[in-house]
């Protein structure tokens, strides 16, 4: 009965959503530990090591602390908007995972417009940040929100341009089809579209608000930016959403540029996860290596470098595809 139910498209989607949510919860714990250990490694200190063997239980302790804390709504804040923001931040992530092909079979929903779905729903993140900043009735929050808008609107353009280059090349927005086209390391899109990969990765760092582009929450200038007023799990959900978006952008990068689940010996899903977490590790190294950029620098990188380069890359791709035909 259950097997039959799982075989229907609806049952498959529901099962995939449940699996995704479980994965996201676990992933939050793993990435908190990973981030603190990477940070410790770069700053020549051991990182967490008191709780459990090698500090492995530290994220569990952190999570329990966050869950146990009191939820405070600041005075004069719009309570509805204030508490809506974390949910708008986290809810679309689960949908973003649906079209990602973790393995030949481990795909939540094999759909033709999968890439578009991810781009559409990850755009909601900016909305949640401005809502949080506005709703908390705090000037740091408001400044963080204003920065988040300018940043995410600007960096969505080069992100789309680099993704479109791959779509032009493959002729499809279906992530499974794009992965199917890359068999063997030499046919990975990374080697055909290196510029698009660089543009994509920089824009993705900015879209997920990771340092060096973490201006909406710059702690040295804005206390904590848009989530200054959030306590306990209000902050926890924002944190979980940020880590989940990191996985989304890295998974899309893996599927578009690194051959997805393509790899020898082991089953595809392990290769996919290995590539995703390798990219996540690079993002973490970025965070602890580069100092935060200034706001004018941030926008100059986007408008003066990434967008013209992305456009040129797109035109070149279209020309080559026309000639090859």
């Amino acid at each position: 009965m259950i097997i039959e139910l799982l075989a229907t498209p609806l049952g498959h989607t529901v099962a995939a959503l449940v699996a995704i949510l479980a994965f996201l919860g676990l992933n939050g714990l793993v990435m908190v530990y990973m981030e603190r250990k990477v940070c410790g490694f770069i700053q020549l200190r051991p990182g967490p090591f008191e709780v459990g063997p090698r500090g492995l239980l530290q994220p569990v302790a952190d999570a329990l602390k966050l869950v146990g804390k009191q939820l405070v709504t600041p005075q004069g804040a719009d309570a509805l908007l204030f508490w809506l923001a974390p949910f708008i931040s986290f809810a679309p992530v689960a949908i973003c995972f649906l079209p990602i092909p973790f393995g030949p079979i481990a795909t939540g929903m094999n759909m033709n417009l999968g890439l578009l779905l991810i781009l559409a729903f990850s755009g909601l993140n900016a909305l949640s940040l401005v809502l949080a900043g506005w709703g908390s009735n705090n000037k740091y929050g408001l400044l963080g929100a204003a920065r988040a808008v300018a940043q995410s609107v600007a960096y969505e353009v080069p992100l789309l341009l680099s993704v479109l280059a791959i779509a032009f090349q493959v002729g499809s927005l279906n992530l499974s089809t794009i992965v199917e086209g890359q068999k063997g390391i030499l046919s990975w899109n990374l080697f055909y579209q290196p510029l698009a990969f660089v543009i994509y990765f920089i824009s993705a760092t900015a879209e997920t608000n990771r340092a060096p582009f973490d201006l909406p929450e710059a702690e040295s200038e804005l206390t904590a930016g848009f989530h200054t007023e959030y306590s306990g799990m209000g902050f926890g959900i924002f944190f979980l959403a940020e880590y989940s978006y990191m996985i989304v952008v890295c998974a899309v990068a893996t599927a578009l540029f690194l051959g997805g689940y393509d790899g020898p010996f082991a089953p595809g899903i392990w290769w996919f996860l290995a590539k995703v977490f390798f990219l996540v590790l690079i993002l973490m190294f970025f965070r602890w290596t580069f100092p935060r950029v200034r706001f004018d620098q941030l926008l100059n990188i986007c408008w003066k470098w990434l967008i013209p380069l992305g456009l040129a890359n797109l035109i070149a791709t279209a020309l080559v595809m026309k000639l090859v035909q």
């Binding site: 417009l113 559409a120 755009g123 909601l124 900016a126 808008v149 300018a150």
Partner: peptide
């Protein structure tokens, strides 16, 4: 998806701004 990408993701954020 275009409705969500353009209107929810971009236009409404600009209105917010």
């Amino acid at each position: 998806f275009m409705q969500i990408l353009i209107y929810v993701g971009a236009v409404s954020v600009l209105i917010f701004f």
